[in-house]
Design a protein around this nucleic acid. Structure first.
Lengths: 141, 141
DNA sequence: GGAATCTAGTTTGACGGCAAACTAAAGTCA
DNA sequence: TGACTTTAGTTTGCCGTCAAACTAGATTCC
């Protein structure tokens, strides 16, 4: 039965996306950053002041995971943390100049990924895949 | 644009499958086993004598990863390792009786997953999703 | 206004995963 | 036969990930 392999197929495809991104990061000389860091940076390109909590929600990772990911971005000088003055518990994360400089690079990475994923696809096929995947996603926890 | 979120959607869906499987394993009282172990067991249900190399290829994981996964299965008494007499390098992995006993349980887990994934899907939609995902997969490394 | 509760983030520990270095057993070939 | 190469598997080290425990700052409410 074909439909039994759906889980493995999704898992494989995701792994392929990851491999592609790792290749790209290596090609562009961006060392020590993983796709998950890219997700965080991407969110910061569009929102210049974000709390850890919102960041975790945006990249759909556990807050403790985000602590580690942001910690690495800070260590590499891509982002900065600053605790809020109104609420001492909340921490704001924002891009450093070095992080801002990555924006065009990541836009290219993103564009290349999209282009590669959709190679040979009709517009209607793209929409149909998105629709069906969303439907599967909705069936899951 | 909708199609830009395809990577996140695939990643999320895969995470959802993982969450579902973890729930199921917990529900069935199978402690200390992760979905990846399930993939190995699944392969052993259909092949009763497999080398580490073939196992790695079958579950699409690095051989060092498989060493660790099988190690855990051995530690929990689900599988046994035995080095070949013809070639001292190769190691055969096979199910123990305790591992064999998991077969019906995992068949149920698998059936439930498939049933949940495809809930509300037409037969043609299932085939179309598989086709489109395979196409994406083929575009990736 | 103080105790109880809630909330934001961090820390800790465990695990799946990979790549590179390593071990040891076959195989190759002069 | 003996050096070289290839192959199977393990070890080591690092990373992303999560859950649970923890810290500390707000909030609630009597």
């Amino acid at each position: 039965m074909e439909t039994k392999s759906i889980a493995a197929l999704i898992s494989d495809t995701r792994a392929g996306i990851n491999r592609h991104l790792l290749q790209e990061l290596k090609r562009l000389g961006i060392e020590g950053l993983a796709p998950s860091h890219g997700a965080i940076l991407h969110h910061l390109f569009n929102n210049d002041q974000v709390t850890m909590k919102d960041l975790a929600k945006a990249v759909r990772r556990d807050k403790s995971t985000v602590t580690a990911l942001v910690g690495k971005l800070v260590a590499n000088g891509y982002v900065e943390k600053a605790s809020s003055t109104q609420d001492q518990r909340t921490v704001f994360v924002k891009l450093s100049p070095k992080g801002q400089a990555l924006k065009p690079v990541f836009q290219e990475v993103s564009r290349n990924l999209i282009e590669r994923i959709w190679r040979g696809f009709e517009e209607t096929e793209q929409q149909e895949l998105i629709r069906l995947l969303r439907k599967v996603r909705g069936n899951l926890p």
